[in-house]
């Protein structure tokens, strides 16, 4: 089985984000990491590979920094890692990103399963997985919390999708795009040996030409969305009003009065 995992690099989830005067986003000196949601996809791919055999290829469309995501995936145990980038990719929205990823996957040719994370914690659009599936004309299995059955030879997969009201169980033919969510597994930590392997690994760079992608369909010319401005939201005002009383019962009653006055109960 050939499993492709789509990953993205993001600033650490602890990072304090800010916007400078020129309107550029900064994450201070926080490290760049693999998008936390993508760790679930990498882990799931490794578990499936170990059970059914095959290879796991991680791909990321992004500048040099994207190597952080690829390295982490390789340190976890992925077999191959490809970065896809061209200056023309700058400014791509999900319409364009999904186009590039789809082209790369089509070029690989022999893919049985594509895994994506729920969302990237930077722009958090939640769009790329389903957009990619639509581009590839593969079944789209987002919000998968459990792969209940997989039959690589028969070419089918059954997953449980977590929706607001509960779990929808669906079956689909392979190849398919599965979007993972937290709860599907517990991503492993990277080992010392893994980190060494990742440091020595070669990371091929695919240009748009390598992926047979049309430069007109990426970057601003291939995108629908522009984001002219990023700003820091107003902070929530100050400290909480601490309610004090003789007894906890008294405090509770004061709180109820306050909540009634706020008209939230």
């Amino acid at each position: 089985m050939h499993i492709v995992v789509c990953t993205k690099y993001t600033p650490d989830s602890e990072a304090k984000m800010s916007v400078d005067e020129a309107g550029n986003v900064s994450w201070g000196d926080s490290p760049l990491i693999i998008n936390p949601w993508d760790e679930y996809s990498v882990e799931e791919a490794l578990l499936l590979r170990d059970e059914y055999g095959g290879t796991v290829t991680v791909i990321s469309m992004g500048p040099e920094e994207a190597l952080e995501a690829l390295k982490h995936a390789v340190a976890m145990g992925a077999d191959e890692a490809i970065r896809i980038w061209d200056d023309a990719c700058e400014g791509s929205d999900t319409l364009a990103t999904s186009y590039v990823l789809a082209k790369a996957i089509e070029k690989m040719g022999d893919v049985d399963l594509v895994l994506c994370g729920k969302s990237a914690i930077d722009a958090q659009t939640w769009q790329t997985g389903v957009a990619l599936a639509t581009r590839l004309n593969y079944p789209s299995l987002m919000y998968t919390i459990n792969i209940a059955a997989l039959d690589p030879d028969g070419g089918s997969i059954t997953v449980e999708r977590l929706l607001e009201q509960g779990r929808q169980v669906v079956e689909a033919p392979l190849p398919a795009v599965v979007g993972t969510i937290k709860g599907i597994n517990e991503p492993r930590y990277t080992s010392f040996i893994g980190i060494r392997k990742a440091a020595k690994m070669e990371y091929p760079l695919w240009t748009l030409e390598d992926a047979d992608a049309d430069p007109e369909k990426v970057g601003p010319s291939g995108s629908g969305v522009r984001w002219p401005e990023v700003f820091e939201p107003p902070v929530r005002e100050g400290e909480a009003e601490i309610i004090e009383g003789e007894t906890v019962e008294e405090e509770a009653e004061v709180l109820v009065e306050k909540l009634l006055a706020e008209k939230v109960i």
């Binding site: 984001w227 401005e229 700003f231």
Partner: peptide, 15 residues
């Protein structure tokens, strides 16, 4: 919201 609501972004679909 972007970056888990730490920042906000204004977006438009011009064409």
């Amino acid at each position: 919201p972007i970056y888990a609501g730490k920042l906000m972004s204004r977006c438009v679909i011009p064409e």
